[in-house]
């Protein structure tokens, strides 16, 4: 057999043997970090079935650590020294465990705990905000506003957990071997790509070098929004400028009904800011002419006391524009 073919044959044979040991290449651990509702959980399950790996999710993580050392904290302490000791101990434990059976570690700061180990493949799964929003709406049967609030809260919670306990900006792609956007791939295709990437990395076929950040956040919605007034468009630009997510007229609140229960008056505030759970209504009319809007806002507050709404008058709006257009 020619030497080149022999080499390929041996490599093929090697990959079969290793697959039999529940490994792709030298990897005995796959860590999956994922955005909320990015299909990261589904990918973890499918990948684990394909490779015969155990899945360690949040629930399993608690029981695994409890079996190992009863009472051991399930997340790193906040004290620097205690945090370092926790990381060292858990890192060694996970490596030992993987020698017995390979596994997928879902979340739990795996990218940080097992950073830099040759036997670990780190994956980040992301998806366009719009797609994640739609999934939450369908999964929990929620409207767009509620879904946007849930998403904003969970995104922030995840960001803060990783920052607080592991000291990382977890969306930095340089923590990962592969960053996968499920806006472009089905779960099955994604698994195929991941396995290909694992083989490539294992074969050291990757070209070292820095990745460009993939996380320049764009507008919350991808479709072009048609604003009813130029001031709304300008306000949206200010929100974008400060990286604040917004939805334009996402909800209409019924305010009055006729005797047959038909809605005869309704109000759709201009903006919803999910990060602050706040509706914003802009008005460019003179203060004297705003009584109709004031009345609507008052009625909305009466009927929906849980809804937070702020009416920005022309004068307030001019202050905002003057301030942000000024010299600060």
């Amino acid at each position: 057999m020619p030497p080149l073919l022999t080499s390929y044959f041996l490599r093929f044979l090697n990959s079969i043997i290793k697959a039999g040991e529940n490994k792709v290449g030298n990897f005995s651990i796959v860590t999956i970090s994922r955005e909320v509702e990015s299909l990261g959980d589904e990918i973890a399950l499918r990948l684990s079935k394909k490779l015969g790996l155990e899945v360690i999710d949040r629930e399993r993580w608690v029981s695994v650590l409890e079996e190992w050392r009863p009472g051991f904290p399930t997340e790193p302490p906040l004290d620097d020294q205690a945090q370092r000791e926790w990381m060292t101990a858990v890192r060694s434990f996970l490596q030992e465990r993987a020698e017995k059976r390979a596994f997928v570690l879902l979340g739990r700061g795996g990218q940080r705990i097992l950073e830099g180990l040759d036997s670990v493949f780190h994956l980040l799964v992301v998806a366009p905000t719009e797609a994640r929003l739609r999934r939450i709406m369908e999964k929990y049967n929620q409207d767009e506003v509620t879904a946007a609030r849930i998403l904003a809260e969970q995104d922030l919670q995840r960001e803060r957990f990783l920052l607080r306990h592991f000291g990382i900006d977890w969306k930095n792609p340089l923590y990962y071997h592969l960053t996968l956007n499920t806006g472009s791939y089905q779960v099955e295709e994604a698994c195929h790509l991941i396995m290909e990437a694992m083989k490539k990395v294992a074969d050291r076929m990757v070209i070292p070098g820095k990745q460009e950040s993939l996380f320049e956040e764009k507008n919350f919605l991808k479709e072009a929004v048609v604003f009813s007034h130029p001031s709304e468009e300008e306000f949206a630009r200010i929100l974008d400028f400060y990286n604040i997510r917004w939805l334009y007229e996402p909800r209409t609140f019924p305010l009055a009904w006729d005797s047959e229960g038909n809605v005869v008056e309704a109000f759709a505030p201009d903006f919803y800011l999910p990060d602050f759970d706040l509706f914003i209504e802009l008005t460019t009319q003179k203060q004297k002419l705003t009584w109709k809007k004031n009345k609507k806002v008052r009625r909305l507050k009466e009927l929906y006391p849980e809804v937070k709404i702020k009416l920005i008058y022309a004068r307030d709006y001019q202050h905002i524009v003057r301030k942000f257009g000024g010299s600060k």
């Binding site: 630009r237 200010i238 400028f241 990286n243 942000f324 257009g325 600060k328």
Partner: peptide
Amino acid sequence: ALSPFKPGLQRVEIEKDVDTPLAG
């Protein structure tokens, strides 16, 4: 110092960053 809002600038930028490490 942060850049003030102005048309054409899409995102706020840090015009002058701190010189002191903030960790801890």
